[in-house]
Computed example of a mutant assay.
Amino acid sequence: MSSNQPLPVVELSARDLQGHGVVFCPHPKMPLWSAHPKVYIDVATTGEGKCPYCSTVYRLKAGEKVHGH
């Protein structure tokens, strides 16, 4: 990925999160969802997380709240 291109961003609702506020990547909401091994990314703690493989940013939609956080 070129440094001039913006990072891909996937906006999520709280219902899209698994377990304790994580999302897995590759995720069906991203265009190339089968591009690398599956990893789990914590989104609940800060409202955003980035995949270490593809740099896709997973972000909670504005106003979304994760229960228990």
Results as ranks from 00 to 15, higher is better:
P28H: 02
Y53A: 14
G68H: 15
G21I: 02
M30N: 08
K61Q: 13
S3M: 06
R15Y: 03
K38Q: 15
D42Y: 00
S13H: 02
V23R: 03
T56P: 01
R59N: 04
K61F: 12
I41N: 11
S2I: 01
V57S: 02
G47I: 04
H20M: 06
G19W: 04
H67V: 15
W33P: 05
A44W: 00
A44E: 11
K38A: 12
F24T: 08
D16P: 09
V39K: 03
S55H: 14
P52E: 04
Q18C: 12
K50G: 05
V23C: 11
K61L: 15
R15S: 14
K38E: 14
L60M: 06
S55R: 13
T45P: 00
Y40C: 12
G47S: 03
P6W: 00
L60P: 06
V9P: 03
P28Y: 04
S3A: 00
Y53N: 15
D16Y: 11
S3Q: 01
V43H: 02
C54S: 09
V9C: 04
D16C: 13
V23E: 01
L32V: 04
K50E: 15
V57F: 03
Q5F: 13
H20F: 13
P37A: 11
N4L: 14
M1K: 07
S55T: 13
P6D: 09
R59H: 04
E48S: 15
H27K: 08
K29D: 09
K38M: 14
E48H: 07
K38C: 10
S3F: 05
H20V: 10
H20W: 12
V43L: 04
E48G: 01
S3G: 00
G68P: 07
E64C: 06
A44D: 06
K65W: 00
A62D: 15
P52R: 00
E64Q: 15
V23G: 00
S13T: 13
P31K: 10
A62H: 09
